[in-house]
């Protein structure tokens, strides 16, 4: 059979490109975690030194715990904060307003996240505008930077627009008849919300929360510039280890642990989102 050149012209570029520049780098990183570092030089090998060294350090587990807990809190918080807003966008406003709102929510993706975090650094500072305003009201000043609170503000800046978009899309997709049927059958608004709307929008809600988790779990800017990097998160750990000479294998260990964690969370979430539908 003649080889269909046309077909492969379109199909192969992605495979070749991703193998060379996506799978390749990730595989190398996994391999690197077993390499040996001696006298600041890496040599290919298959030893568990890096794994032993990382896993036995308490600072690694502390960082792991901080990162995991904060990302979970961010996911829950983002879901709770976003939901009333998404609900309003899905049910209380006209289509035109909703389209505009979603367009506005896309805007932040294209503003430098760094600049936004810098702006929060200014806003939240002890002598900054927010404390000044609070000062007129006779409260404060609060020190909001270099704390878990600061980090959370940063995470929300990063994830809220996306979570609201995902939630709104899934809420707006609910069949209105379903909701009206619930009302007609005498269900109270609260009961309708919990028994009809939330279950129907479950997939969107869970996907939103998962994205919030993934993004906050991997982010280093907020914990570094707003959280004061004490305690460090896993991504800060990777940066510190990478930038300090040839410790890439150790950084690779941390990176693999992060990917495994994200994978487990993603699988669990997909299971939760689609799993119990059948019953």
């Amino acid at each position: 059979m003649r080889i269909d050149g046309y077909r492969y012209t379109w199909r192969l570029p992605l495979i070749v490109w991703q193998a060379l520049f996506f799978i390749g780098p990730l595989m190398l990183m996994v391999a690197m975690s077993f390499w040996l570092v001696r006298n600041y030089r890496m040599t290919p090998d298959f030893v568990f030194d890096n794994w032993d060294r990382m896993m036995s350090r308490s600072f690694f587990w502390d960082a792991y715990e901080v990162t995991l807990v904060r990302a979970c809190v961010a996911a829950v918080l983002a879901t709770l904060i976003a939901f009333p807003a998404s609900y309003a966008l899905a049910f209380k406003v006209s289509d035109t307003v909703r389209r505009w709102a979603i367009f506005l929510l896309v805007v932040p993706f294209f503003t430098s996240y760094l600049v936004r975090i810098y702006a929060w650094q200014v806003l939240l500072a002890e002598s900054g505008p927010i404390n000044a305003v609070l000062g007129f009201g006779g409260i404060g000043p609060f020190s909001m930077l270099n704390s878990g609170f600061g980090t959370m503000v940063g995470y929300m800046t990063l994830v809220l627009p996306l979570v609201i978009i995902l939630q709104t899309t899934s809420l707006a997709g609910i069949d209105r008849n379903l909701i009206e049927a619930a009302w007609n059958l005498g269900a109270s608004p609260v009961r309708t919300l919990f028994r009809v709307i939330i279950p129907a929008a479950k997939v969107g809600l869970i996907i939103g929360a998962v994205f919030a988790f993934i993004l906050s779990f991997g982010d280093f800017v907020s914990p570094f510039y707003l959280g004061g990097s004490k305690p460090p998160t896993l991504s800060i750990l990777i940066i510190d280890t990478t930038k300090s000479g040839q410790q890439w294998p150790l950084a690779a260990v941390v990176a693999i642990m992060m990917i495994v964690t994200l994978f487990v969370v993603a699988v669990a979430a997909v299971g939760a989102a689609y799993g119990r539908r059948r019953s």
């Binding site: 199909r11 992605l14 495979i15 991703q18 520049f21 996506f22 799978i23 390749g24 780098p25 990730l26 190398l28 990183m29 690197m32 993934i214 779990f217 991997g218 982010d219 280093f220 991504s235 990777i238 940066i239 990478t242 890439w248 950084a251 690779a252 990176a255 992060m258 990917i259 994200l262 993603a266």
Partner: peptide, 30 residues
Amino acid sequence: FRFKSAYIALALLPPTIPLVIMGLAMLAWL
């Protein structure tokens, strides 16, 4: 074609990898 879903997954996967990890892997590879 066969393995099409794997093909699509391969195409869409990169944004799910945390940036710091992409950075490290890219740095080592490049």
